[in-house]
Design a protein around this nucleic acid. Structure first.
Ligand SMILES: [Mn+2]
Ligand SMILES: [Mn+2]
Ligand SMILES: [Zn+2]
Ligand SMILES: [Zn+2]
Lengths: 150, 150
DNA sequence: AACTAAATGCAATAATGTTGCAATTAGCTC
DNA sequence: GAGCTAATTGCAACATTATTGCATTTAGTT
């Protein structure tokens, strides 16, 4: 996974540096969106130090190359988990446990474009996040409710 | 328009204060998303002064009452222009002139929920922003291209 | 090993948010 | 309209997040 991103960096003529590797690995392991300072803290816990400016610049780069996305609701960054070809990358975010999942849905994109076109707008990108419960948290929720009022 | 919001404040037992009126009017006139400090600057240009803390708190309130939305792409606030009943409020954002338009599309919501349900997710809210060109900017764009390469 | 453009670190500064508490005010009662 | 009080605002201090210019280091190349 990290390897894929490194390939992209090389292919685009960017250097594969130690700080960039480190940020990539942190993002790869993280199961939630991370802010630049989150990343700095996590690295520090591993005895590694990166200047926050460096982290900002690295995230900017990753973002511009679509190696990472910026979640709209939280503002945190996540590593892209999909092949870059496909269109608009969407997110589901569990507001209980913070879990996130990326997905695409071309049909949804199409309908979305159609809908805005009808309103006179020529859409190029979609930003879409769905907030709710992941399957785990939903199951737990059901059990709790079931016990409370059977 | 401002009047509607004032009614909501009263109905919910919140005081209708001068600062709240002022922020409401700024948001109402604005044709783009505004940050708290944007609002402070705009008010200052009218010779009015509000402490930024006050503006933050007012925006929090408006947000919690759905009188204002926080645009995800820019982080700025906009006044809600729709009746509150309907479901998920979506935005189109022109990345040329910054114009925004709010709309609803129940069908889109439905399909979005269905799509995430298929992936095991139980969605409660959608955040959706479409970025592109408004009809004005699109027309201008066409003309420019037309002249460049006829 | 030496070279060089690219990347990082550092320091200073700017911008954005938050908190506790004192002073003010909107809406109510009389 | 004057007085009352809870709600709201202002102030001050502080915390967090983000940006900029320049010196230093380093990845990739020769
Ligand atoms: Mn992606
Ligand atoms: Mn709305
Ligand atoms: Zn969950
Ligand atoms: Zn436009």
């Amino acid at each position: 996974m990290v390897q894929d991103s490194i390939q992209v960096l090389q292919a685009q003529g960017y250097k594969v540096t130690k700080p960039r590797r480190q940020v990539l690995e942190i993002l790869d392991r993280a199961q939630r969106p991370l802010s630049p300072y989150d990343i700095q803290r996590l690295l520090r816990q591993q005895g590694k130090y990166l200047n926050h400016v460096t982290i900002y610049r690295i995230l900017d780069l990753f973002y511009s190359l679509n190696l990472a996305h910026k979640l709209l609701s939280t503002g945190g960054f996540v590593k892209c988990t999909l092949p870059s070809e496909e269109g608009c990358h969407r997110f589901m975010v569990c507001h209980r446990c913070g879990a996130i999942q990326e997905f695409v849905d071309p049909q949804l994109c199409l309908q979305e474009s159609k809908s805005t076109r009808n309103l006179g707008f020529h859409t190029e990108y979609h930003f879409s996040e769905s907030s709710g419960l992941c399957s785990n948290c939903y199951r737990k929720q059901l059990q709790k409710q079931g016990n409370a009022q059977p």
